[in-house]
């Protein structure tokens, strides 16, 4: 498999580390235990397009959000994590 890092271009799989589902969003401080439990443990098991986090640890150390089809391994989009570069995020 090859992943086109948003910063480095296409690279072989060995330079990346897989984390998992990119859909769950970390609850704000003060969230209930149930909400945090869902964030930590609840995952869809998608047969088809799913977004997931990959880390270009063997390259530029950027975290990427990769949309990949779990049936065909086809990658339809790749975007960097909001904080990968120095861009201002949020207010």
């Amino acid at each position: 498999m090859r992943i086109a890092c948003s910063f480095c271009g296409e690279r072989e799989l060995g330079e990346f580390t897989y984390l998992g589902d990119a859909k769950p969003v970390r609850p704000e401080a003060g969230a209930s235990e149930d909400e945090v439990f869902d964030y930590v443990y609840l995952r869809d098991n998608v047969a088809g397009a799913t977004s997931e986090y990959w880390y270009h640890g063997g390259g530029c150390r950027a975290w990427l959000k990769v949309t990949r089809n779990t049936l065909t391994h086809e990658i339809s989009s790749i975007e960097p994590a909001a904080g990968a570069g120095a861009a201002k995020v949020g207010a």
């Binding site: 880390y55 150390r61 975290w63 994590a81 904080g83 995020v89 949020g90």
Partner: peptide, 19 residues
Amino acid sequence: AGLVMQHLEFCRQVLFPEL
């Protein structure tokens, strides 16, 4: 060492990019 660096980068880039 390597895993903590990866974890901290995840925190920095994904969880708390506003920092």
